[in-house]
């Protein structure tokens, strides 16, 4: 059993690895791309042993734009599915005072992911098929004082994915936007997250697999987040600006 290859961009992330596990379990070959791919040796062996699929490691930096075409050329095959889990939250307070820090957050969550996925989208379009999965965030659904730099970059990425989906509809290329709520990962370690609103990375992996198979457009991993964000979006700005949430 072997499905088309799945490329994970930002594969050192817990969410990225969980998505890799979910697809490997279905027989897909896996391409793990990360800034420091040597550290993924154990993950590679694990995926191969558990699921008997081919796994390859690739050096990839989302912000090293000049390297992107060559990175794609060097993959064993153009993947069937490309998943981007690259992201960087930074510290909101730092992003308020240090614009270099702010720009790194903006670029890591929007510019970098959109750049690489833009190239992949064109190759998929030329081929006539492919699935693009972008991990964005509910933080992009409305700007809030506590994380609006990160949130705004995710908002940009969400809009970009929506536009790409619109552009490629009918071309055979599908685009899935994933807006996880809280996920228990390295990014959120040590934060006091409400248990009922927090997903495990494995749940994100399964949800993405299901959503890809069903060709969904936008998913929140835990359905309750859809409701939470509906409420948050519908609060009038005059009130919202005074709230602290």
């Amino acid at each position: 059993m072997s499905g088309g290859a799945v490329l994970i961009l930002g594969a050192r992330s817990d969410i990225g690895l969980a998505i890799a596990q979910a697809f490997a379990a279905e027989g897909h070959a896996i391409q793990l791309a990360a800034r420091d791919p040597d550290t993924l040796e154990a993950a590679r062996n694990d995926l191969a042993l558990r699921h008997g699929v081919d796994v390859s490691l690739h050096a990839f930096d989302a912000l090293d734009y000049d390297s992107h075409e060559a990175f794609l050329d060097a993959l064993p095959v153009l993947p069937e599915i490309a998943v981007c889990t690259v992201g960087f939250m930074g510290e909101q307070t730092e992003s308020e005072t240090d614009m270099n820090a702010a720009r790194l957050v903006m670029r890591s969550n929007f510019e970098g992911p959109a750049s690489i996925l833009g190239l992949i989208a064109n190759r998929f379009e030329a081929r006539g098929n492919g699935i693009i999965v972008g991990i964005s965030s509910v933080a992009g659904d409305r700007g809030r004082a506590t994380n609006y730099v990160y949130g705004s970059a995710k908002a940009g990425f969400t809009a970009w994915l929506a536009g790409l989906r619109n552009r490629l509809a009918g071309s055979g290329v599908h685009v899935l936007t994933v807006k996880p709520g809280f996920v228990a990962t390295a990014m959120t370690e040590g934060m006091d997250l409400p248990e009922r609103l927090t997903a495990q990375p494995q749940a994100v992996g399964r949800a993405v697999l299901r959503a890809v198979n069903a060709r969904r457009n936008v998913i929140y991993v835990k359905p309750v987040w859809w409701l939470v964000m509906l409420v948050i979006r519908s609060i009038p700005e005059a009130i919202f600006k005074k709230m602290r949430i």
Partner: peptide, 28 residues
């Protein structure tokens, strides 16, 4: 510490990290 690291198909020796669950070994 939940990764399987190596399996020798001749001897049946599995090398794994200590947090791997037995059920996952069986599944694999």
């Amino acid at each position: 510490f939940n990764r399987m690291l190596d399996f020798d198909t001749k001897t049946g020796v599995l090398t794994a990290e200590a947090g791997v669950l037995l059920g996952d070994v069986i599944a694999a």
